[in-house]
C-alpha cells in the first residue's frame, strides 16, 4: 500500500525547539491522530507537510510527491486547516466559498451547501461576526468541500463547545468513510483521537515517542493494582513505565506484555487486585511523564 505521508529522518532546528529525526508513515486510506502537548512538534510536522518549512535534513513525501519541491501538486490534493488559520474578516463565507471554488476544480457545491446546513452557518454573514465554533466549522467546510485526497487538520476541535464538537466529529467520521482518503489530525483531546483514528502517534519535545495501530496500542497498555510489594520504585520488570506506591497499594503501568508482567508479579508474591485497560488520555499522561520511547 502506498503511503500518503512519509517522513524519513526529518530534522528541523529552531532556537527553542528541535524536531529530532522524525520518521513517520501514514498509509493511504488511514486516519492518524497526532497527539502531544503544546510545543511537542505537531504544528511543525504539519507545516513540513505543507511545504511551508524546509527540513534541515531528511525527506518528506506526500501522496508520492517530494516536499517542498512539489508542493503545488501536493497542496492541490490536500485540505489543510489549522487552529491559527483565519478567513478575511470583512468578507462573507459565501465569498470565501467562491474563492476556494475558483482554485479547486473538485469543489463540490452540493456538499458545501449540505455542510452549511449541517453546521448551521450563514453563508452571507461576514466572517468577523463568527464565533470560534462557527469559524472552525466554516474552515472545515472550505476544506472538506474541495474533496481532498489527504485531510490535514491541526487541532480541529480545540475550543469547541460540546454541540459544535459533536457536529464536527460526525462530519469528519462521514468523510472518513471514503477508503481512499487519508487523514492526519492533531489534537490535545485524546477522546477525539481515540474515537476517529486508526493509528496513533505520540510526539513529545520534538521526538516521536510511538506510532502504532490504535487497537494494538491500547491493548498493550495496562494499569495493574496490587499489594504485597514493599518497594514499588525498586521494581524492575519488562514494560514497566510507572510505579506509584500509596501505603500497601501499588499502581503499576505497563506498556507491553501485561500478561507476562502479571505472572512475574505473582511470582514475586504480589496480590493482584485489578488489571485494567487504559484510556488514551491516561496512556498519554503516563507516556509523557515517563518519556517512554518504545
Amino acid at each position: 500500500m502506498q503511503n500518503a505521508i512519509e517522513f524519513q529522518n526529518v530534522c528541523k532546528r529552531y532556537p527553542e525547539f528541535y524536531l529530532d529525526n522524525l520518521s513517520l508513515q501514514l498509509p493511504q486510506g488511514q486516519i492518524m491522530g497526532l497527539v502531544g502537548v503544546n510545543g511537542a512538534g505537531k504544528s511543525t510536522t504539519m507545516r513540513l507537510l505543507m511545504g511551508l518549512i524546509q527540513p534541515d535534513s531528511g525527506s518528506v513525501s506526500v501522496l508520492g510527491c517530494k516536499l517542498p519541491a512539489q508542493q503545488v501538486a501536493v497542496k492541490a490534493q490536500i485540505g489543510y486547516a489549522s487552529d491559527d488559520m483565519r478567513m478575511y474578516k470583512n468578507e462573507t463565507l459565501r465569498w470565501h466559498m467562491g474563492f476556494i471554488q475558483s482554485v479547486y476544480g473538485n469543489w463540490d457545491s452540493r456538499y458545501a451547501e449540505h455542510l452549511l446546513t449541517v453546521f448551521d452557518l450563514k453563508a452571507d454573514q461576514k466572517t468577523k461576526g463568527f464565533s470560534h465554533g462557527q469559524r472552525v466549522k466554516a474552515g472545515l467546510l472550505l476544506v472538506l468541500a474541495r474533496r481532498p485526497k489527504l485531510v490535514v487538520l491541526d487541532e480541529p476541535t480545540t475550543g469547541l463547545d460540546p454541540v459544535a464538537r459533536e457536529e464536527v466529529l460526525t462530519e469528519l467520521a462521514e468523510i472518513l468513510r471514503n477508503e481512499e482518503r487519508s487523514v492526519l489530525f492533531s489534537s490535545h483531546n485524546t477522546q477525539d483521537v481515540e474515537q476517529l483514528s486508526d493509528t496513533i502517534s505520540f510526539l513529545h519535545k520534538g521526538k516521536l515517542l510511538d506510532s502504532q495501530d490504535k487497537e494494538i496500542y491500547l491493548d498493550r497498555w495496562r494499569r495493574v493494582l496490587c499489594t504485597g510489594i514493599s518497594n514499588a520504585a525498586a521494581l524492575s520488570l519488562p514494560g514497566l513505565v510507572r510505579a506509584k506506591q500509596n501505603g500497601s497499594l501499588c499502581e503499576l503501568v505497563f506498556n507491553r506484555n501485561p500478561e507476562h508482567a502479571v505472572a512475574r508479579l505473582n511470582e514475586l508474591g504480589a496480590q493482584i487486585s485489578s488489571v485494567e485497560p487504559m484510556s488514551l488520555e491516561k496512556i498519554f499522561v503516563a507516556a509523557v511523564k515517563s518519556g517512554v520511547h518504545v
Binding site: 508542493q71 503545488v72 497542496k75 489549522s82 491559527d84 488559520m85 483565519r86 482554485v103
Partner: peptide
C-alpha cells in the same frame, strides 16, 4: 492569520 489560509492553497 489569513496568511496560513492563503498558503494552504496550491501556491509556493
Amino acid at each position: 492569520h489569513t496568511l496560513p489560509f492563503i498558503m494552504s492553497l496550491p501556491v509556493t
